[in-house]
Simulated scan of single mutants.
Amino acid sequence: MVSSPGHTARPVPSPGARPAPGLLELGAGGVAYALALALGIWWIDGIPADQGQVRGYVSYFVSGAAGVVAFAVAAGVRLRALAPFGIRRISWKWVLAGIVVAAGVYWVNQVVALGYIAVFGNDTPQGDYQAAAGAGVLSLAVTIVLGGGLTGLGEELFFRGVVANSLMRYGVWAGVVLSAVVFALVHGLNLILPLAFVVGLVNATLLRRTGSVWPGVVVHVVYNSLSNIGFLLTS
């Protein structure tokens, strides 16, 4: 290719190159997530503290909805396509693998939680979640739909579909480890931080292995559902 004087030739992307999210999508999605989360926290803070069951439902809804909103903003800002964010079909073996992995992560995190509590004490911020899941079978079903289904979907769409995919261009440490750190920090400096880091590490690895967010969604939905069942059994 010959360029005219005073102009720099731009590289031509290869025919097989796929568009990928980058800092623009990461920034737009991050701002949208922060705003949605702030509005959600304002909503939750307006619910009386003695209505823990309702606060738990709303908290789960906010967690999932914030991720969905942030994903929609990130996907619409430039690429306007879903495949670059990992919305790609997977085989049933990955669905089954996700279920098995979720069970393994759940029990690993039981050990992680015990270790954290032994050192730092039990500073879990999930009292409202426990109140909602522990209020009976019907209430448990609601928390599984909101906390397992919606939260699992929303957080994976944003934290893996946008955050991990955007960072993956900088290498495995950024795409997998750094994205897991971001996911953990969003959950606060408390008992949930190391548990979220483990989930984030596993799901970002699945994203890198498959190119799809769906195995991570399966893991997240099953993991959160098991956690809610655990809340009911220990209430």
Rank of each mutant, 00 (worst) to 15 (best):
V77I: 10
R78H: 09
L79A: 01
R80W: 05
W92R: 13
A75F: 06
R89G: 15
A102F: 02
W94E: 11
I90D: 05
L96S: 11
R89L: 15
A81Y: 08
G86L: 12
P84Y: 11
L82F: 15
R88K: 12
V101D: 05
R88L: 06
V100M: 06
G98E: 01
V100E: 09
R89N: 13
G86M: 07
R89E: 15
A97N: 00
A102W: 01
F71E: 11
V77E: 07
P84T: 14
A72Y: 08
I87M: 15
K93I: 07
G86H: 13
I87A: 15
R89I: 07
I99T: 07
A81W: 04
V73F: 09
L96H: 02
R80K: 15
V95R: 09
F71G: 09
W92H: 08
S91P: 01
V101Q: 10
V100F: 12
K93N: 10
A75M: 14
W92T: 08
A81C: 01
G86Q: 09
R88W: 03
A97L: 12
V73P: 07
W92L: 13
A75G: 12
G86K: 12
W94F: 07
G86W: 09
I99F: 10
F71C: 09
S91H: 14
F85R: 13
L79D: 03
R89A: 15
I90P: 05
R80N: 05
G76K: 12
P84E: 14
P84D: 14
F71K: 13
S91C: 01
G98H: 03
P84W: 15
A83I: 05
A81H: 04
V77R: 10
A72L: 15
L96Q: 08
G76I: 04
G76E: 11
A102P: 03
R78F: 02
R80L: 01
A74C: 01
R89P: 09
R80H: 05
S91Y: 06
I99V: 15
W94T: 00
P84H: 14
G76L: 08
V100P: 03
V73W: 12
L82N: 04
A75L: 13
R78D: 05
I90Y: 06
A102H: 03
L96A: 13
A72C: 07
I90Q: 02
G86A: 10
